[in-house]
Write a protein that binds this DNA or RNA. Structure first.
Lengths: 231, 231
DNA sequence: ACCTGAACACCGTTCAAGT
DNA sequence: ACCTGAACACCGTTCAAGT
């Protein structure tokens, strides 16, 4: 029980196991595929496996742990395949975009994204990406502190984008209703810019600008290595 | 029932009201002060007011709506008091730091931060801050699209910082335990930068670097108006 | 117009007791 | 060593029926 993230238990003594980490994760995935991740509860999962609910607590720490383990299978794998460029600036951007994209694929990522020490719990491939960012910053002459600051700020941006997007993606009202809403709420004449944008807001806000924003952040934090100098 | 955010209903006919928006918010605040915001449930709130749970649904749309209304009372007020500087770069930073700080004060802000169209629901003072960011970007020669991109990216950074911080603040393990954890998980020799930081990670990660990160983001997105040119 | 109890449809987690 | 039912301590929300 020391490392819940490891998926290879070696039972030896006592009552034979009726289930296992692997079977639990497989069953969880079936429920997610069939009914959506919101329906994945420990009770439902136990029913799917035909075991008592409380049995699950011998294999997963809690619901959060289960969700992170599920994420591991997808995200860690896709992160491990990322090729990181030599150029430090590009390396940082590639690394963080990879983290972003890996997590964006999994709809329940938003549920566990903000747990303390989340990225390390995703295992070695995730740490490799953090290392890439830190080493690139140090290569560009930053201190250890500054390297950590850069990573953390980029991580906050990533988390924020993912969470806001996860929520707005859920309730997908039609474009016209959203435009009407924006026209109405931004119609204050004391706010000329908002009023000028008006109904266009939902359309503009729907654009994916993560990479551009991240690149700007990196350039702002590493003034030495702007696009121009890097090439 | 058209606008749940308004706190001044004018009852006229029918059975006299046993409660009101104002009484509900006051009772909610008593519960939060006494037991913490996590204990604020509709059932508990109804009990505090001595009304049926279902009565509350005539005054608030749902739990989320209740939380946002509570936030309004604090955040909107503190946002309204913010003085925005003339200099566009400083205006953006001041505006977003104000949003950040206003939301950081309220521990349950993280719970509702990511709802679609959150900032407009905070009312006019919040819109004023958005307008400030947009107008500053336009003043610096950006297009409408670029202004919205800047605001959105800054908003993602703000949301991410608040959410990560809210979670890591909850479970406050002692410094030594955290340092030990970091030493252990970052001890991989293939990751020299992480290994070099090691036990220092929690200490470095605890530093408040929001303003610095935001300033870097702004400078990265508005290359014309760096610190130097602005002064 | 406003209020209500009952009901629906659930949760995660702990405990003591089995096998 | 592993599994279990029962229990604890709750949720948000809808409905039809009052007043």
């Amino acid at each position: 029980m020391s490392d819940m993230t490891e998926a290879t238990p070696t039972p030896r003594r006592g009552r034979p196991a009726v289930t296992s980490q692997a079977r639990i994760l497989a069953a969880a995935r079936r429920i997610i595929d069939r009914e959506g991740w919101r329906r994945l509860t420990l009770r439902r999962l136990a029913a799917e496996l035909g075991v008592g609910t409380t049995t699950l607590y011998h294999h997963v720490r809690d619901r959060e742990d289960l969700l992170i383990q599920l994420l591991n299978e997808d995200a860690a794998q896709s992160l491990a395949e990322v090729e990181l460029p030599e150029n430090p600036r590009e390396r940082i951007i590639t690394a963080m975009v990879a983290v972003h994209d890996a997590l964006a694929e999994t709809p329940w990522a938003a549920e566990v994204l903000t747990v303390d020490g989340f990225l390390p719990r995703l295992g070695e491939p995730a740490l490799r990406v953090v290392e890439a960012v830190l080493s690139a910053a140090v290569e560009l002459g930053r201190t250890q502190e500054q390297a950590v600051d850069l990573f953390r700020t980029a991580w906050y941006l990533t988390v924020g984008e993912l969470l806001v997007r996860a929520r707005s993606g859920e309730l997908s009202q039609d474009a016209e209703r959203r435009a009407d809403w924006a026209r109405g709420t931004f119609a204050d004449p004391r706010m000329p810019q908002l009023a000028a944008i008006g109904a266009r807001w939902p359309e503009l806000a729907a654009r994916d600008t993560f990479r551009v924003g991240l690149a700007a952040l990196v350039d702002g934090m590493l003034p030495g290595s702007s696009r121009e100098t890097a090439r």
